[in-house]
Design a protein around this nucleic acid. Structure first.
Lengths: 247, 247
DNA sequence: CACTCCCCCTTGTTATGACAAGTTATGGCG
DNA sequence: CGCCATAACTTGTCATAACAAGGGGGAGTG
């Protein structure tokens, strides 16, 4: 008797809480709710969607992590003030993230080569000193302006397959769909440096400009490091945004 | 009959899943588990701790968000490789975060004054143009070296009380304990800029060095913005680290 | 010996039910 | 009229139960 309601007609490959989460997210982003407006109570939503409370709460938890809503015990769940960049909590490649915001993103491959892993790369990818890796250098464009230099390093079993592929798009979907490597999480580290000569040249910078440098180590779902990258963004044309919580 | 087990003797003010989460975290950080070792299964933990599965999962979900563990369906839950900076998913002030890693952190107040809110500050704090704010400027030291300039802006009802207080420590605990303002989440944005004259001077920098600039807008638990800050870190002596997930 | 299929163990999802804790509105009492 | 107790809601925590989905190992078969 329960759960007669199916949000999608026919087959339903996605978990209910994902469907509900996405449905609520769309409504919020479409402006269906005012900023700081109270969402229907969890009890209401149980009836609306025809699911149990635990499922509603799982959907709300995700939206909360995304920074779209916040809750207050005894009062309700409310819509957050909209942010310029939403949902950076999720691991996304440059192109995926920008496309989601309506930008036109592209990439140009500078070089791809097999080489001995530099020390920091070997440590990150769990390789022995002297082991080989595949290095891919690319420039990232936003609306046809260069904004980022990307140096990626892959272990040989992954990188070997890259020489024969078109690398002008996103690499994450390629890893997942073509290589069948389900991605898990990534460790990210940010600092600021001055542009070196090569970076200056490719990003059309004057001498001595500030660069936002991101180190990103992406793991597959089993925790094995798959992709170690240095991303050097123009400091004046890119911001990294996200949201964290107390407690 | 259920739940006879109490982890702490006597009263138990903390939720069970918090106690379990903290207990597991301590064991992991103490090296009780090897890196990549499998944790006891959720079923085992149910017996060990004498709680239901939902409680175990709630604890594991938090540890997963902290980047301490990762799970693989059908296989188990595993310990992540340890990171230099752990737990940046949680909203912490500079001093709190550094103290947790064994650094000696301190602050020196440069100025505190009431002033008209600059445009960006007013927008962030939800103030009308022309409204007054309290600005606090401080230098942050790590092991007695200056690493960060901090400009904080508070709405008047909060900032008014700051003139009579010692601001050489952390402000977050002060807001929570002295002002009784429970903190919720924060929106963070990072970019890279060049040091201006004032920053150069206070951080002992040469001309034209790179600065990692953090904008942080902290809300109370009801979603009202309480504290808007610009944090300018020396690019060469500080890194921002965190972890995000796919899906 | 090798290969396949099946069972068991693991995490993932979901339902139902219950009580605690915090907020708000209502209504009665002084 | 004002104050306070209380009822009605809301989110937070937790128990019990069940099935789905994915992985691994062992047994059986070729």
């Amino acid at each position: 008797m329960p759960n007669v309601t199916q949000l999608m007609a026919g087959h339903s490959p996605l978990p209910l809480y994902v469907q509900i989460r996405d449905s609520l997210r769309r409504q919020i982003l479409d402006g269906h709710f005012e900023v700081h407006a109270r969402l229907p109570s969890e009890n209401d939503m149980m009836n609306t969607f025809g699911v149990s409370r635990i499922t509603i709460r799982q959907a709300l938890r995700d939206l909360h992590n995304e920074g779209l809503v916040f809750s207050a015990q005894g009062k309700g769940t409310f819509v957050s003030k909209p942010k310029a960049v939403q949902n950076v909590q999720r691991l996304e490649g440059f192109g995926e993230a920008m496309a989601a915001q309506g930008y036109e993103a592209s990439a140009r491959v500078l070089s791809i080569q097999q080489m001995k892993a530099p020390k920091a790369v070997a440590a990150a990818l769990d390789l022995q000193p002297g082991d080989e890796t595949v290095e891919v250098k690319r420039v990232r464009y936003l609306n046809r302006s260069p904004v980022c230099i990307e140096n990626s390093y892959f272990p040989m079993d992954v990188g070997r397959q890259m020489f024969s592929l078109d690398l002008s798009g996103d690499i994450f979907p390629m890893l997942e769909n073509l290589f069948d490597i389900p991605l898990g999480g990534a460790d990210i580290s940010l600092d600021a440096i001055l542009a070196d000569n090569e970076t200056q040249q490719y990003l059309n910078l004057k001498a001595g400009e500030a660069i936002l440098r991101v180190e990103r180590l992406t793991h597959n779902r089993d925790g094995r490091p798959i992709d170690f990258e240095y991303l050097c963004y123009r400091g004046d044309s890119f911001k990294y945004q996200f949201r964290i919580d107390r407690k």
